[in-house]
Computed example of a mutant assay.
Amino acid sequence: MQKHVVEIEFCTQCRWLLRAAWLAQELLTTFEQDLASVNLVPGTGGILEVRLNGAVLYSRKAMGRFPEAKELKQLIRDVIDPERSLGHSDGHQADKPGAS
């Protein structure tokens, strides 16, 4: 099974370390068997960007807002295991025909 790498680049000038660390904790808890690491990458200029295996999944600047933990979990799940249910925080299974 391939282990994936998540990077969360955050703005040190904006003091977003705690937000980035909280997101990292949420991802590590949800994908503990699937992730090789979640790396916090200091940046500047208002950046908050989440990358999976080098590909940008979420950019605060592009979206104009901060990501929700649920949203990031869904984005990562959709890449690494699209059929996985995320439980109560997931609308994925409810969207499938015949799912309850």
Score class of each variant (00 low, 15 high):
Val41Glu: 02
Arg65Asp: 11
Phe31Gln: 06
Leu86His: 09
Arg84Tyr: 05
Phe31Asn: 13
Trp16His: 06
Trp16Cys: 00
Ser100Thr: 12
Val41Phe: 04
Trp22Gln: 05
His4Cys: 08
Gly45Asp: 12
Asp90Trp: 01
Ala24Ser: 07
Thr29Leu: 15
Phe66Asn: 02
Thr44Gln: 10
Lys96Gly: 05
Ala69Tyr: 08
Arg51Lys: 07
Met63Pro: 06
Gln33Tyr: 14
Leu40Pro: 01
Leu18Asn: 13
Asp90Phe: 14
Ala36Glu: 10
Ser37Gln: 15
Ala20Ser: 01
Met63Ser: 14
Ala20Lys: 00
Asn53Leu: 08
Gln2Tyr: 07
Trp22Ile: 02
Gln93Glu: 13
Asp95Met: 08
Glu26Phe: 02
Gly43Ala: 03
Val41Tyr: 06
Gln74Met: 13
His88Met: 10
Gly46Lys: 06
Leu35Gly: 09
Gln33Arg: 05
Arg77Leu: 05
Lys3Cys: 08
Gly98Trp: 08
Glu26Ile: 09
Pro97Asn: 08
Ser37Ala: 12
Ser100Met: 11
Ile76Gly: 01
Gln2Glu: 11
Met1Lys: 14
Gln13Phe: 07
Thr29Lys: 13
Thr29Pro: 12
Val38Gly: 00
Gly87Trp: 08
Leu86Thr: 10
Val5Ile: 13
Val50Glu: 00
Lys3Gly: 11
Val50Lys: 02
Arg77Ser: 03
Gln2Lys: 11
Ala94Pro: 06
Met63Gly: 13
Ala99Pro: 05
Leu18Ala: 15
Lys70Tyr: 08
Gly43Ile: 01
Ser59Gln: 12
Phe10Tyr: 09
Thr12Pro: 03
Ala69Gly: 05
Gln93Phe: 08
Gly46Tyr: 06
Val41His: 02
Lys70Gly: 10
Ile80Arg: 09
Lys96Asn: 03
Val41Leu: 05
Leu28Ile: 12
Ser100Glu: 14
Glu83Pro: 02
Pro42His: 03
Asp78Thr: 01
Gln33Ala: 15
Gln13Asp: 10
Cys11His: 02
Leu86Lys: 03
Leu18Lys: 14
Val79Met: 14
Val38Tyr: 00
Met1His: 10
Leu35Cys: 05
Cys14Lys: 14
Leu75Glu: 03
Gln74Arg: 11
Lys96Met: 12
Gly46Ala: 05
Ala36Lys: 09
Ser59Pro: 12
Glu71Leu: 11
Gln33His: 15
His92Asn: 12
Gly64Ala: 10
Thr30Gly: 10
Ala24Lys: 01
Ala94Leu: 14
Pro97Asp: 08
Cys14Ile: 09
Glu71Gln: 11
Leu23Lys: 01
Ala69Ile: 04
Asp81Trp: 04
